[in-house]
Simulated assay, not measured.
Amino acid sequence: MPRSEMTVGELIDQLSACDPSTPVQLAMNPFVPMAHRLEQVVPATDASGRAVVYLAEGRDADTQLGHLPPEVAVLLAWQGPVQAPPRRPRRTAGGK
């Protein structure tokens, strides 16, 4: 089944439930989830002539904010809710 694209109206509806002073970030790359600073909203036309709106990250070196919090990656279904088991202490040369 083809996936439907989010519309500007749906985005506005979802954002209207948030505090307007909250920063907006992009969650990108489900295999290595990272957070990016959103800088621009660009209305344009795609290759088929259809109107689209692009959300763009900034160009500055600090636009990538780092790893996405694990709980966000889980909510996006990019990662499972299972955490790696704790590491055991290493053995010493004396065999203890």
Rank of each mutant, 00 (worst) to 15 (best):
V52H: 06
A84P: 04
P43Q: 12
L76M: 15
P89A: 12
L15C: 15
V8W: 00
A73F: 02
V24M: 15
R91T: 09
M28T: 07
M6T: 13
T63D: 01
L11A: 15
Q79G: 00
D62T: 11
A51P: 02
R50Q: 13
D46Y: 10
F31Q: 12
A61I: 03
P23L: 07
L68A: 01
A56C: 14
A73L: 08
T7Q: 06
A61V: 05
V8Q: 02
N29H: 09
P20C: 12
M6I: 13
S48K: 10
P30T: 03
A84Y: 03
V53L: 13
V82K: 13
W78Q: 05
A35E: 01
P33E: 03
A61N: 05
Q25W: 03
S16Y: 10
L15Y: 10
R88F: 04
G80S: 03
P86S: 10
P89S: 09
A17M: 12
R37T: 02
R87N: 05
A35R: 01
E39C: 01
N29M: 07
T92Q: 14
A47L: 04
P23F: 07
A84Q: 11
A35N: 00
R91E: 09
L68G: 00
V41T: 12
P81E: 11
I12V: 15
A47E: 14
R87E: 13
V52W: 05
P81D: 15
A93G: 12
V52A: 11
N29L: 04
Q14G: 15
P89R: 13
P69H: 12
T63S: 08
N29I: 01
V32E: 14
P85S: 08
T22I: 04
T45K: 05
A47N: 08
R90D: 08
T92S: 14
G80E: 09
S16D: 15
G66L: 13
D62H: 09
H36S: 04
M34I: 00
Y54G: 02
E71H: 15
A27C: 08
T63E: 04
L15W: 12
M28E: 01
P70I: 03
H36R: 09
I12R: 15
C18P: 01
A44E: 12
R87K: 13
E5T: 04
P69C: 08
L11V: 14
L75N: 05
V72Q: 06
D46L: 09
V42I: 13
Q40S: 11
T63K: 01
G80Y: 00
G80A: 08
L76G: 09
P2G: 02
G80P: 00
S48P: 00
S16A: 15
H67N: 03
Y54H: 10
G58M: 10
S21T: 15
M6P: 00
D62A: 09
W78R: 09
L76V: 05
L76D: 07
L68S: 00
E10Q: 15
P69G: 05
V8S: 03
H67W: 06
P85K: 11
A84L: 04
S21E: 15
P89G: 01
E39F: 02
P43S: 14
A73D: 06
L38I: 02
Q14C: 14
M28L: 12
V52G: 05
Q64K: 10
M6R: 12
L75S: 11
